[in-house]
């Protein structure tokens, strides 16, 4: 296969970027999309040009590192597939492909196709946990969780934190990501004690990081490689509103 690639090149966060055009040849349909980019990079290095920087690691669809928009769709055209698992047999000889980074103020470009997604980590640090310190916890079977609740929690826990939801959203909103974490814990008994605090803290941090607001286009759900449901956003809205209306932080001094 022969392809024309239009790729976003940006030297650093401070400099302006632009699209650059490259030709690649002898692309096997059995290659993954990233292996196709590897081929381009090998070519560039041998020509003494800088290779295209892009994030990737596990290349089996679970680490969430890879983050490319292909022809205007995060992770490319195949549903529920990360770009590392997308194979070139999904494209045709002679195709022209536009490859761009995730675009959001909260995900500034580091270089080329690499963006900084540490905003997600900061949201997690604000409340994406159950406060259980190591040791002193009850036996695992002491907490009964029905299969349905466990499965629901797992549906949301499957999020890989890739940020495709933000990239696809018209408003660069992170609500699917935040909604998924809040919903995972909301479906589990372990998540109940901190439920209100968590919703308030995570949403506040999300707003502070400069993500947009959801306008219910559900584009996030459509591009999510793990098929996370927007029902998680509704649950987050509900929990946040309830917490906003009812939660009062207790401020008692210890002795």
């Amino acid at each position: 296969m022969k392809l024309t690639l239009h790729i976003w090149r940006q030297k650093s966060a401070k400099e302006k970027g632009a699209m650059a055009t490259y030709q690649v040849d002898h692309i096997s349909p059995d290659m993954s999309f990233l292996e196709m980019l590897d081929t381009l990079n090998e070519q560039l290095i041998l020509n003494s040009e800088e290779p295209v920087a892009f994030d990737h690691d596990c290349r089996e669809g679970i680490c969430g590192a890879c983050a490319l928009t292909v022809n205007g769709v995060p992770h490319g055209p195949e549903a529920q597939t990360t770009i590392c698992q997308l194979h070139m047999r999904k494209f045709n000889d002679g195709d022209a492909l536009y490859v761009e980074p995730w675009r959001a103020r909260a995900f500034p470009v580091v270089k080329d196709l690499v963006v900084d997604r540490s905003a997600f980590d900061r949201i997690m640090a604000a409340g994406g946990f159950v406060s259980a310190h190591t040791g002193g916890v009850p036996d695992a079977n002491a907490i009964l969780i029905g299969k349905d609740a466990a499965d629901k929690a797992m549906d949301y826990a499957a999020c890989i934190g890739c940020g495709a939801c933000v990239a696809a959203c018209k408003n660069s909103s992170a609500m699917l990501f935040v909604g998924a974490k809040i919903s995972q814990y909301a479906h589990l008994p372990q998540g109940q004690p901190e439920r209100k605090r968590r919703a308030l803290a995570m949403v506040a941090k999300m707003d502070e990081e400069g993500f947009g607001a959801c306008t219910n286009l559900y584009e996030c759900e459509a591009v999510c490689p793990k098929g996370i449901s927007v029902a998680g956003i509704a649950l987050m809205n509900r929990d946040f509103l309830r917490a906003k209306l009812t939660y009062v932080e207790t401020k008692t001094g210890g002795a």
């Binding site: 159950v130 259980a132 009850p138 907490i143 969780i145 299969k147 589990l188």
Partner: peptide, 22 residues
């Protein structure tokens, strides 16, 4: 055994049976 207890306490959604047991 303690590891499993710890992970469950953290909210790791291990597979469960209908009755709620692991």
């Amino acid at each position: 055994n303690e590891i499993i207890d710890q992970c469950v306490a953290q909210g790791v959604p291990f597979a469960r049976e209908y009755g709620g047991y692991l």
